[in-house]
């Protein structure tokens, strides 16, 4: 199905220490990353891993394990307090603040609580990333209509979020996250409060996007969702560290794959 990760992940495993070659297809690289909020204890510790360009990743672990914190590092809402984070092959842990917007425009985020702007119509919510990226109004209309149609909300484009159902809001949030065809899509519990059918439909949106080349990272507790994607890579967090990515999950072993640096 998807050459990027059907066995390809294993085949592409690079010789340890071959730094130059390693950067080529890694979209995310964590090196001894730790994160603490304020003066508290570290909520993430010693994270060493790389995510392949075009991969599909599930991030699981018990509540409080640090999944959202890890995603915040990915979508640049937090800087690591320790270690290095590379995104798109560039060091961002100590990049100047002014350099961050450019990276953020390449990342789509589905927040757990949607974070739709309630006084904007569904159309304007979905259009926001395009407008921020500087698209002219002429270049906004068609893609937004198309995206809304794609998530099945063509007839709700002028509705404001409070008048939409939970599932509809979730689809607006997803449309907004993908409108710019991000290179990296980060979704935090995107199926947390929808029924199983809707969860499946949303997952299909992600896989369709993934087929177009977007790297997808989904944090979820939803085992059934993971089972739907036998080819996806797994990352499991417990107490702020990654636990054996292949052994910890009951999924078919060839799916539980993430490259962990020693």
């Amino acid at each position: 199905m998807r050459p990027q990760w059907q066995g390809g992940g294993h085949a592409e495993a690079r010789p340890a220490g071959g730094k130059g070659g390693r950067g080529l297809s890694a979209i995310v690289e964590f090196d001894s990353v730790g994160l603490r909020y304020g003066t508290g204890a570290e909520v993430l510790r010693d994270l060493n891993f790389r995510l392949q360009k075009g991969g599909f990743y599930f991030l699981t672990g018990p509540s409080g394990a640090g999944k959202t914190s890890l995603l915040k590092l990915l979508y640049l809402a937090q800087r690591p307090t320790r270690g290095r984070v590379q995104l798109f092959g560039e060091e961002i842990s100590d990049a100047p603040r002014a350099a961050l917007p450019e990276f953020r425009r390449r990342i789509g985020i589905v927040y757990q609580d949607f974070r739709l702007i309630r006084h904007l119509s569904a159309f304007d919510n979905v259009a926001l990333p395009l407008r921020i990226a500087g698209s002219s109004e002429a270049d906004v209309e068609a893609p937004v209509r198309e995206m809304l149609a794609w998530v099945g909300l063509a007839d709700r484009s002028s509705a404001r979020p409070p008048t939409l159902s939970g599932g509809e809001q979730q689809r607006v949030a997803i449309a907004r996250a993908v409108i710019n065809r991000p290179q990296l899509l980060v979704a935090d519990e995107p199926t947390g409060n929808v029924d199983a059918d809707m969860a499946q439909r949303l997952l299909h949106l992600f896989t369709a996007l993934n087929r177009l080349g977007t790297t997808v990272v989904v944090a979820t507790h939803d085992i059934s969702l993971i089972k739907e994607m036998p080819g996806a890579h797994m990352i499991r967090l417990e107490g702020g560290t990654m636990v054996d990515p292949t052994g910890a999950l009951k999924n078919p072993p060839q799916t539980g794959w993430v490259e962990v640096q020693r």
Partner: peptide, 15 residues
């Protein structure tokens, strides 16, 4: 809230 969302999408301070 709106500002946070915009920042998350890559809006600059000037924007």
């Amino acid at each position: 809230f709106t500002i946070d969302v915009m920042h998350g999408m890559g809006a600059t301070d000037v924007q």
